[in-house]
Amino acid sequence: MSVDIIFKIAAIGILVSVLNHVLNRAGREEISMMVTLAGIVVVLLMVIDMISNLFNNIKSIFQLY
């Protein structure tokens, strides 16, 4: 389990916020909305199997089979 993914998500977050700012300043609100959504989806895809791992672990710890 590496700590890399946290930095990766942080970097994506910073980039998306800067992109959002730039696009808003240029008056392209709808595209900035799309960029934000795309960022969320990408980060979710990155963490989704970790989340499922977490749920499996919880299930096995509390023996909820």
Partner: peptide, 23 residues
């Protein structure tokens, strides 16, 4: 004046995003 700066920063930031995603 509206879009020139946007496209310049968009190019750089888009490249950085691709790199971070692939890294």
């Amino acid at each position: 004046s509206k879009y020139q700066n946007m496209y310049k920063s968009l190019g750089l930031l888009g490249g950085l995003t691709i790199v971070i995603l692939l890294f």
